[in-house]
Amino acid sequence: MPIDYAKLKSWPVPDIVQTYDVRDTILYALGVGCGGDPMDRADLAYVYEEAIKVLPSMGVVLGYPGFWLKDPATGIDWRKVLHGEQGVIIHAPLPAAATVVGKSRITEIVDKGKDALLFSERDVIDQATGQLLCTLTSTTFLRGEGGFGGPTGPTPQPHSLPDRAPDLTVDTPTVPQAALIYRLSGDYNPLHADPDIATAAGFRQPILHGLASFGVACRALLRACCNDEPANLKEMKLRFSSPVYPGETIRTEIWRDGKAVSFRARVVERDLVVLNNGFAQLD
């Protein structure tokens, strides 16, 4: 049954009220690889409650409305859904503990013929102050869902990386239990935990969440470009290109052009790009 464009475009994604504390903030940072070196004081700041810092990428787990595309009434086969792109715009530093409201909306659905693209946004708002903390942007690839007669464009072009060797690289090892830690921040998709489901999907083992790799790249940008000050990172976005297996090393390759930063990430062990077309804006 083809997508009903008008119905899906106006889908009432529920607002989510979420209260989190310092323990949740630390758990998120552990899930994206912080704290691997107990003598790294810069890294410790993200996982130790004394003067704790918050990774800007943590916005992706705040006010999350859940996998609502699994609802049969959407007309989408959720098993064919892929997370294509993710971005975060930081409007104010994320607090280490707060009650936030996540307000999600679908901005467009593009008919690509065979497949479709769903574009969505989420504002994360501090409930106590009304402060807009961050805006999350996401592109979801709907395999085999095209041909419903919707708009065929336009679609944003991916950010082009410079045609030169990277200026900086940051290697981040992941631990074998990385996906099991990250899922405790709210994404319980069994693909990241259950070997039977992972192998049935064509993987040799459960894979790391794409948004965990997103957090690894954020941590690398803070280290390499922001003097480990989260407030210096105002925006980052990227395209997911391949999964990571927990235990692999993620190498973030970075190009600096003033306050504009380009980046990608590859797994060292397989020399495979897993995050591509990355862009970040510095303060």
Rank of each mutant, 00 (worst) to 15 (best):
P158Q: 12
V124T: 01
P14I: 02
A29Y: 01
G63C: 07
F148A: 01
C218Q: 08
T129D: 01
M58F: 09
R41G: 00
G247C: 09
W68C: 11
I125M: 02
C34T: 12
V274T: 14
G186Q: 05
N227S: 14
Q18H: 12
G35C: 11
V244W: 13
A260H: 14
G146W: 05
S138Q: 14
R23P: 00
S241L: 05
G210R: 08
D228E: 15
C34W: 13
D111V: 02
P190V: 01
A45F: 06
D187Q: 10
L191W: 10
V274W: 13
T99D: 04
S242M: 05
D71R: 11
V101R: 12
G35P: 06
P2W: 13
E85I: 00
H83M: 09
G84P: 02
D15Q: 14
T139A: 07
L238D: 03
T252R: 02
P206N: 01
K103W: 00
A212W: 10
P246W: 05
A98E: 07
E108M: 04
I254N: 04
K80M: 05
K114Y: 07
M39Q: 15
C226F: 12
L117F: 14
I197R: 07
S262H: 15
E248Y: 04
P2Q: 12
V216C: 11
L132R: 12
Y48A: 03
T129S: 02
G147M: 07
A198Y: 12
D196H: 03
S185H: 02
E253H: 10
L191G: 06
F141M: 10
V54A: 05
A212R: 06
W11T: 13
Q131N: 13
T174S: 15
S57F: 01
T199G: 00
A198R: 09
E49N: 06
P162E: 10
T152A: 13
K9E: 06
A217S: 09
G144V: 00
G186A: 06
D4M: 12
L94E: 03
L132N: 09
L30Y: 11
K112V: 07
I3A: 04
H159C: 00
G202W: 04
A29E: 04
G186S: 11
K9S: 10
I197W: 06
V268E: 01
L238K: 03
V170H: 09
E49M: 05
D37Q: 05
P154Y: 14
Y245S: 10
R270L: 12
V101N: 06
T135K: 10
V60P: 06
E49G: 11
T139Y: 07
L191N: 07
V110P: 00
D283F: 10
Q86E: 04
P95T: 03
L69M: 10
A224F: 09
A198W: 12
F67P: 05
M39W: 13
H83D: 05
F148C: 03
S242K: 13
G75A: 10
L69P: 04
G87A: 15
I3H: 01
P14S: 09
E121G: 09
S138I: 08
G87C: 11
V17G: 00
D15S: 15
G33C: 04
V267R: 03
G35A: 12
G66S: 11
A198L: 12
R164I: 00
F214V: 05
L222E: 01
T155E: 13
W78M: 15
R239Y: 02
